[in-house]
Design a protein around this nucleic acid. Structure first.
Length: 521
DNA sequence: TTTGCCGGGGA
DNA sequence: TCCCCGGCAAA
């Protein structure tokens, strides 16, 4: 079953060597664009069939080659290029049939193919090959040869245009860009159902925003006019993995999920997120406009409110430029863990519950490293439920200070690394994705933080406020956990330094299994 | 599994 | 108060 698929599928979009069109004998490389086969049940029957491969040559021209010609090309140049090993491999596995070679040399595709869930496997039938071909092209082209042929289906293109435009627009219209993350948050917060009116984009933005966030930042720098498909980092796996693993390692493996994502509609982050929000949470949206503080249960509602009441716009959400986003914040209420945490907290540090917050909602629950020696609690609650949004909001609620490294580092680094001027290098281009996952992962435990990790803001003050916000958000759990356990130190400890055999050299605390006093972090 | 250390308890 | 250790949680 597998073998068959591998063979049949792998040729499309793959790089092959073909005899030189000039006839001088020098082989040239090209990418297989299409295969025409009279008899497509190739490897099953083992019969030879006349297959014609349309190959896009390096010079951009399209040529058609017969199976044999390509095979000859292979032989000719087998010694160089990535095909060598796999080619040999193919041969060693059987007759030097052209099809076999393809199956072998295309291990990347092969693996990818295997990762495809059966139900979603793309058909290799000639009559549907145009679709799959497009898919293939997208992947292959970007990673191997600089081929200008990669055209997506019109639908795809349109969709991408629209979504990309949305993202880019929001990126460029304000330094506080945050719309996309917000959408994600909305989606997460279970408000999709509520805000059906938010706009045509929202419903589908979940998957796209992940993808887009992974490339939109770098694209600022590189080539905005040719945004890569929302393949994000894992799109490259198919190319890397196979190169190591070789042909037909046979296991669909743990990469299936990512594949599914590529396959179309499923979302990379979609799954984990809802899972993490298991605990009963209620999401409210609070208007941050000065003297307003209106709280609505849906993003659409609050947006409409801001748009009409504060921004004086009457147009539909469609004509919104997203500015409303800056004037409301998402407040998450964790009805169980928060309550518990607060209850247990109250006696210990009553100050955590600040009455100054006009918001009718309790503090959000947040996952954050505990900090036992914290002292600035009293101020934190002010920003309860605030997202980075609040920074731009016409509200003066967030005068919080954060002096603790652990609070500042993570949050602060995120926005900075996200700034749109980040280089297009692999590492930085990954950052947005990372940070988006950041916002997600931070929601994990009892978290309710819907932080928009992605904030292109570059202003120092912003970063600061941002960290403050996050610190604030994190205070409840911190306080909760602070009562229980100190964050484990990372530095060397007596035990490590002296070893068990020299236990007598340990500091007293270490000997007593207490927090090391000698090598404090 | 190892490590750091909290909480608790005995002397 | 000193000392030890069970046990949890992070690494």
């Amino acid at each position: 079953m597998h073998t068959r698929r591998l063979v049949k599928r792998s040729i499309l979009g793959s790089r092959v060597y073909a005899p030189s069109p000039t006839g001088d004998g020098a082989p040239v490389t090209g990418v297989v664009q299409a295969v025409k086969q009279e008899n497509r049940d190739v490897s099953a029957t083992g019969a030879r069939r006349s297959s014609v491969y349309t190959v896009l040559m390096q010079d951009g021209s399209l040529k058609e080659f017969s199976e044999e010609e390509i095979a000859a090309g292979f032989n000719h140049t087998a010694a160089k290029g990535p095909f060598k090993s796999s080619l040999k491999h193919s041969y060693s596995n059987g007759a030097p049939d052209g099809q076999k070679m393809e199956g072998g040399c295309l291990s990347p595709e092969t693996v990818e193919e295997q990762r495809l869930p059966d139900g979603k496997r793309v058909s290799r039938d000639p009559d549907t090959s145009s679709v799959s071909l497009l898919e293939q092209k997208r992947k292959v082209v970007s990673s191997s040869i600089d081929v200008p042929h990669a055209r997506r289906s019109e639908d795809e293109v349109d969709m991408d245009k629209v979504t990309a435009a949305m993202v880019l627009t929001s990126l460029s219209t304000s330094p506080l860009v945050r719309s996309p993350p917000v959408k994600v948050s909305e989606g997460l917060s279970g408000s999709w159902k509520d805000n059906g009116s938010v706009g045509p984009f929202t419903p589908s933005s979940n998957s796209s925003s992940c993808g887009y966030w992974s490339w939109s930042a770098p694209s600022d720098q590189s080539n905005p006019s040719t945004p890569s498909p929302p393949l994000s980092a894992d799109s490259f796996k198919p190319f890397r993995v196979p190169s190591l693993g070789g042909v037909g390692s046979g296991s669909a493996g743990p990469e299936d999920p990512s594949l599914e994502e590529q396959d179309g509609s499923s979302l990379l982050f979609d799954e984990p997120i809802p899972r993490k929000r298991k605990n009963s949470m209620k999401v409210m949206f609070k208007c941050l406009w000065k003297n307003c503080g209106k709280v609505l249960s849906t993003a659409a509602g609050i947006q409409r409110h801001i748009r009409t009441i504060h921004l004086g716009r009457n147009c539909d959400s469609d004509c919104s430029d997203g500015e409303e986003d800056f004037y409301y914040t998402e407040i998450k209420l964790n009805t169980d863990s928060v309550a518990d945490g607060l209850n247990s907290l109250l006696p210990a540090s009553p100050s955590v519950l600040s009455p100054t917050l006009p918001s009718p909602s309790p503090l959000p629950s947040l996952g954050h490293p505990p900090d036992p020696h914290r002292a600035s609690d009293p101020k934190e609650p002010h920003a309860g439920g605030a997202t980075p949004l609040s920074r731009s909001a016409p509200s003066a609620l967030y005068l919080v200070h954060t002096d603790h490294a652990y609070q500042a580092t993570a949050p602060v680094s995120i926005p900075s690394s996200n700034s749109s001027n980040s280089p297009g290098s692999a590492s930085t281009s990954f950052t947005p994705t990372n940070s988006s996952s950041f916002s997600i992962s931070w929601q994990s435990p009892p978290v309710t933080f819907t932080g928009n990790a992605v904030s292109p803001s570059k202003s120092q003050g912003f970063g600061e406020q941002r960290s403050q916000t996050i610190a604030v958000l994190s205070s409840p759990p911190r306080a909760t956990t602070a009562l229980s356990r100190k964050v484990r130190g990372e530095g060397k400890k007596c035990r490590k330094v002296y070893g068990m055999e020299n236990r007598d050299m340990w500091c007293t605390a270490c000997r007593w299994k207490k927090a090391c006093q000698r090598f404090t972090d």
